[in-house]
Design a protein around this nucleic acid. Structure first.
Lengths: 310, 310
DNA sequence: CTAATTATGCTCATTATGAGCATAGGAGTT
DNA sequence: AACTCCTATGCTCATAATGAGCATAATTAG
């Protein structure tokens, strides 16, 4: 029952969407997620994260959710030397338009870090990655290990007749890490059996921040299918196509337009504003607003169905 | 980026099922969840939890999942005095039959702590609780607050035509806490507007352990609907009714027998052993075993549908 | 042999989902 | 004005998932 004393920090995965681009707030020119100390002045962790982020970004935080607590001994050399470090990570959504630069913080397209996760324009680009993964599969020491690796690759990347599951972001990243295909792996001393240049394996991050980002993306992709959290990312008024583009940006795949509208409407999550959107060369779209009243109840209950299907 | 130093402990919600009773491992004669220090010798938190639990209980841990990290300043007097304490809670499932006693640890029916969560034999017993909650609703200072409270109660407890959502375990507990109806609330100095004796409000626990337990139950109830984790709680061979009783025990409600079988079979998660169960006064049931091969893939992918519907 | 009890097979209505066709309402072009 | 191009919006249809119930099978207890 004696609690050991450890170092603790907060790490935030802050998400916004601009048009069709999912953005994540980074520091150190895109190499790190924003992190800060666990300050004791706040009542709860959640409140601490909110205050800290809002002070840093000057943006209100619409939605905050705890992601995961990491305390691996082998996370990095620093933690090995100084004893265990605990990182408590949070996912936060903001509807503000990301500025270009904000005291050293930058909003980056999250697919810069995970190019293979964006399948809105076809997943064909994967083939090089898949080939490299197969090399790793074959390099396994035992036949049983070959089978195990092969299955993992097939499931994670939707091969052999399986469907692509967009929520397996973390599994895919960890597979690539184990295979030595992402830069963090070679940095951490994991051997690689392929030439990784030009494979589109994304930008690396410091420490295990890319893993944390993967966790956040996976969580958000899962969340939008059963909670109307997308609206936390939308401006006050939007067209149904805007909304669809946002969901598609997060999910990394395209949706059937008519079915998407049907879903949104039958959920009664939005209402017309009576205003039309700026003409864009086609039939003008109605502007909708989010029905905050119903959200309160829905968000709390989770009674009703999702908001993102193929 | 300077991480503050804090005290950290692990708290485990260990679950087993005996017949139709969901059990949770407790210490201090049912007043606490087992907790231990975060020992630095393990590679990861997960590994640390597993080793620690298995050393304590001498049972293999089938499934481990991180629940939540609590670090509220107001968690209890101790943390206030000594600075922030971090508690990292885990959910663990074991298929071992719980012994009566094991070095001070006791398996308890989790509905002893949440009687209102067991609706397998009707939810009528709620009326007293509902009345007390209504008293709290009416005691709100402002009309807007009355409406807000009223909505929360209705959603959490499935009133006014809403359906009972068995995953809202934590919301219900927190509502009862705020209303001063559970013993922990009065202990923490929250006023109550009703006579709470004889309402069936469950056994209290030390600190916020009952809240952590509620978190674990909610997580497990959600999990069984999309991941075949129930099997972690089953013996090597079981009848389909055994399996159903286990799911019902966790979910706190009865399921349609035929539909349950249909679901289990179409998921191909079990296979016949060729052995029949001991006669129990009716037609003898076939004994099934869990198909570990398919689980590996399923558990990892989460491709296929759930295993628990009404 | 009958009643009670549990297992198991099957049907049916309702709803959710995925895909496509058709029409509506604008801008620009000839 | 007629035509083209574009996006919005309305509607249908097949299929799958879900919730509920009926019917039959295989036992034990009496």
């Amino acid at each position: 029952m004696v609690a050991s004393s450890v170092a603790a920090e907060l790490i935030a995965v802050l998400v916004a969407v601009t048009g069709a681009t999912p953005q994540v707030l980074t520091i150190a020119r895109g190499a790190s997620l924003p992190s800060g100390p666990l300050s004791p002045e706040h009542r709860s962790l959640q409140a601490g994260v909110r205050a800290w982020v809002e002070r840093q970004t000057h943006h209100p935080l619409g939605y905050v959710e705890q992601l995961y607590t990491f305390a691996d001994n082998d996370r990095n050399a620093v933690s090995r030397a100084e004893g265990r470090a605990i990182s408590i990570s949070y996912l936060g959504l903001t509807r503000e338009q990301p500025n270009a630069e904000d005291d050293g913080a930058t909003w980056c397209n999250w697919y810069d870090y995970f190019p293979w996760e964006d399948r809105r324009h076809g997943g064909v680009g994967d083939s090089a990655i898949i080939l490299a993964l197969h090399a790793w599969v074959e390099a396994a020491p035992k036949p049983s290990e070959i089978r195990a690796r092969s299955l993992r690759v097939a499931v994670a990347f939707g091969l052999e007749g399986r469907r692509w599951n967009e929520e397996l972001v973390l599994q895919r990243y960890e597979l690539l890490y184990e295979a030595g295909l992402v830069a963090e792996a070679t940095r951490d001393g994991i051997a690689c059996h392929s030439d990784t240049s030009g494979l589109g394996l994304g930008l690396p991050m410091q420490q295990d921040h890319r893993r944390i980002l993967a966790t956040g993306i996976a969580r958000l992709r899962a969340k939008i299918t059963y909670r109307p959290v997308v609206f936390e990312l939308m401006p006050p008024m939007f067209t149904l196509l805007d909304l669809q583009r946002s969901v598609e940006a997060l999910a990394g795949r395209l949706l059937h337009k008519q079915n998407f509208r049907r879903l949104v409407e039958q959920q009664e999550l939005v209402e017309e504003t009576g205003i039309m959107a700026e003409p864009t060369g086609g039939r003008p779209a109605k502007l909708f607003r989010f029905r905050a009243d119903i959200l309160q109840e829905r968000a709390y209950a989770g009674t009703k169905p999702p908001l993102a299907r193929s």
